[in-house]
Design a protein around this nucleic acid. Sequence first.
DNA 1: GGAGTTGTTTAGGA
DNA 2: TTCCTAAACAACTC
Length: 263
Amino acid sequence: MPELAEVAFYSKKWAPGLGDRVVEVICRERARIYRTAEPGTIRRGLKGKKLTGIETKGKQMRFVFEEASLGLHLGMTGKLLVKGKEHEPGRHDHLVIRQTKRSLVFRDARMFGALKFDSSAEPDWWVKLPPEVVSRSFTLKAVSEYLRRRKGSPLKAVLLQQERFPGVGNWMADEILWRCRLHPGRRAGTLGDDEVEIFFRETKQLCRDALRIIGTKYGRPPASWLFRHRWRRGGKCPCDGAMLERATIGGRTTAWCPKCQRE
DNA sequence: GGAGTTGTTTAGGA
DNA sequence: TTCCTAAACAACTC
């Protein structure tokens, strides 16, 4: 489920644990989320440490402890919860961090999520993440160059590239292209300068809007967004009422309006 | 029972 | 080399 704004929202779920110390770490050892970090390392590295900070970049999260960083990606079905300090881990609770007053829980049914651990303050895997779409260093020039580099790819596939559009996922990509009135199957190299500029502007703006609406209180986007119509059978374009189309583009289910987003 | 799911990585082909 | 696509991962819902 989680894209940029949902990740921002979920990261705050563990905020009640800020300033409190880790008493015990429970890992479901064989869970696939440990493919990128040893459970033993995480257990030893976090025990006794105080949670001091929470950050997100795109779909990545980082929980900062004293002399330790825990990286966390929610994958497709990951969720963060806070439970009582005696919380008995459920079937999909693969990581439970017990503090003095509560348990911080990472729950993930499909286990596409992943963890990372480092005992330094600024681990490479965090520092080297690409600039956020809403930041100043996300520029028209960078987007324009990237579109040229991926000139043969459909726009939908390009927007899903985390190295350039960190945090953009399936529904956000559809929403951006719908706002731009660009067909998702359009090849990246065929855009004119004016279209590139619109693409750049709408990408940034949608990320801002999503963070505002979903990022802090998990609000529901207004009915004027494609979001509210894209999954419904017989969904209609909120702009002109035309029946939405659906197909696999860039390997993912894609919805668009055939009337305003012409090929 | 089968198809589909808001993500990422990797293998292999062009 | 570089870029692009499809498959694999796993569990749940419709």
